[in-house]
Nucleic acid binder design. Structure first.
Lengths: 221, 221, 221, 221
DNA sequence: TATGAATGAGGGTTCATTCAT
DNA sequence: TATGAATGAACCCTCATTCAT
């Protein structure tokens, strides 16, 4: 009772949780700064500069993310999560399943999924638990969307998810070199041309086998 | 006359060029090693490692190429030159102009033009003389091929050279990370899908403006 | 009041400055080692060796002084500051203004101002703020001392500050080559002979124009 | 007989000695270029650049001078030789022995004896035969000139050759930093002031002992 | 816990010197 | 003999990571 009536009690209770709130806020700032830096400078971006952009000390970054891989994973995970959400929204809201795929692709490009997912390749051990959750979620919704489009006769038969996802990643990557963000101007054009190529009926026979994301992973040593 | 009859004259003339022959051999080995390294690790590949792969001392690399830019230019120039040759062959030998474009695109991918031309972006001053020669040569033949395909009603009207070249570069880039050369397995599939999207009649309206290579150059700060 | 009564407040305040105390100690050791090395080997002395003498890692040196210029400036600034103090003391304590000049010259030589001020020539952009403060301070006190000596008829009329300062710098420089610190044995003799030449009445007509320190600066490209 | 009458015989004989003439010419060009470079950039001047200025291959420099020391010695020796000649001329032509000293000092400064003789300190083993010859020659003529001036009551009694030679070297050295050749503007003023201080009667008591060149040499480890 | 500071390892580049023609 | 080319060692500087407060 006394605490309930004493003025400032709530503030005190707050004070108990505040440090954790601060830590979470720091963590968010780090991930946000890291996303910007990785997109702009690639996966080798200086960690000190990421810390500086997040307005925290460099050692604090290491407390939250003991190595570069951990930070990369978290950045990619968060982007994957938002991308999966975009896919789910597109799937739910578009009546034409091929239009849903197109919408998803363009929205994913805006999320820089290209810049970031490709970071995964070769930069850390593949099977982090938390990342797998989002990867599977994304894989499943994209698979479902493609299957629906295929059944509707809107998507050519000879393509698999890896075809879509790798091309999406590549076409939305920034051009190499610092600050070449200008790829944005062209990405959506190229993605649209690619989607036109995916549309049924197929206009050509494709060489090789269709790829899954698992193929890509395995292909990486 | 006198030199022709004097014994050893030929040997002397030889002696003038022979040392250069050794140096040229070294130069070739450097360019070749650099091409591999740049494709695999990007334009920031350690020059010392390039020298090691070429089995020469590190300072020798600097004798031939005083800075990284010069080496990058030479690597890109040689690839551009071979790619232009491929384009000219395809243009000459294929009766269907769209088939010629397709053949060129796949051959260019095998030359790793994607990996290498994108190196240009932001990594050195744009207008080196020798590079420009090859760039113009390549630009002109590709423009000619696209124009022919367009006139034949085989290429959609709303695309320009930059659309083709940038997508070609992006789709044939190796995935980031060491040794991810396995993109080759998928590149030709993705390129074919993209070419299907380029084929007339257009299946969609494209967003934005068509890009030229000049646009890309200007977009880079 | 509140901080005074709160236990640990002083300790906390201390904690804010204590790390800086360690860093300052390192900084002092760097400047001291740099002074020795610059005097002994000139302004091109290896920075790694300076770090080694200061018993710190090489990168620590760069944390404190991002480039060679910054370190040079700090070394020279501190010596200029001590030299200006010596001049002010001599000016205040000696009744004969020419004796004050002589005392200043010998004390400045002991500060190695010769070795160090000459480092300025051509090794960094001339107008660093903090350095200018000390340079002006030194210039003004020496000008004042010379003017007083001139008015007292003790200093010949045809000399200016640059004549004194450049000769002081040159005569007190260490001889080139490692460890030739033994110039000290002779510097004071030579300086005294030079001062005898400065004394009024003039024993000869001087060639050229009298130099100011500004002349020297401008003379450097 | 037959060779005497055959046309071109003399030319042939010439041809035997011509290579040596070429070699000597090369040697002269190297020494000359080295003198310029050492004066301008100090004793660490790049040997490759010296070779380039002499318009010869770098390896040719090594054929003539197997190491930097040998080249330094030769440069200094030639300057010492010319300086000794200047001393001998001044001694022969000036009636006032102190005026002879003054003339010698200024001429020696123009020979850059300061820049070059100080190169000796610490940069090579002290007792090269050919160098000693010139050093002794120079020492003896300067000693003789000083003795004559002393006897004539024109030079103060408490100075020795080292006092003159070291101060001469120091005052005529270029200021540190590349290309600071502008010391010339002031050198002759400072030397004149120093000579005024050397003139009898002495205006002060000198600290320390008078130095000989031998003292300097021994002082160097 | 958060931080500024320290550090070692590695890459880029220059230069003295050696080698092969 | 004279030369261009090759080389390794040394230096400068950056950055990921650890330490001490």
């Amino acid at each position: 009772m006394k605490t309930a009536t004493r003025p400032g009690a709530e503030a005190e209770a707050h004070r108990v949780t505040r440090p954790r709130a601060d830590a979470l806020r720091n963590r968010e700032r780090i991930v946000s700064a890291a996303r910007e830096m990785f997109v702009e400078y690639g996966p080798e971006a200086p960690l000190d500069e990421i810390a500086r952009r997040a307005s925290i000390g460099n050692a604090t970054l290491y407390r939250h993310f003991p190595d570069r891989s951990t930070l990369l994973v978290e950045v990619v995970r968060s982007v994957m999560s938002r991308t999966a959400e975009a896919a789910e929204r597109a799937d739910a809201e578009e009546s034409d399943p091929f239009a849903a795929l197109c919408r998803f692709v363009h929205e994913a490009a805006d999320e820089r999924i290209g810049a970031l997912c490709t970071l995964l390749c070769g930069h850390f051990e593949p099977h982090r638990e938390d990342l797998e959750v989002e990867r599977i979620r994304l894989t499943q919704i994209v698979d479902a969307m493609m299957e629906r489009a295929r059944l509707a006769g809107r998507l050519r038969e000879d393509v698999a998810q890896g075809d879509l996802m790798v091309a999406l990643a590549q076409l939305s990557r920034p051009l190499p070199g610092t600050g070449c963000m200008n790829i944005d101007r062209f990405t959506h054009r190229h993605l649209q041309l690619f989607m036109d190529g995916l549309e049924a009926p197929a206009r050509s026979a494709l060489p090789g086998r269709s790829a899954t994301l698992e193929d890509l992973r395995r292909a990486t040593p």
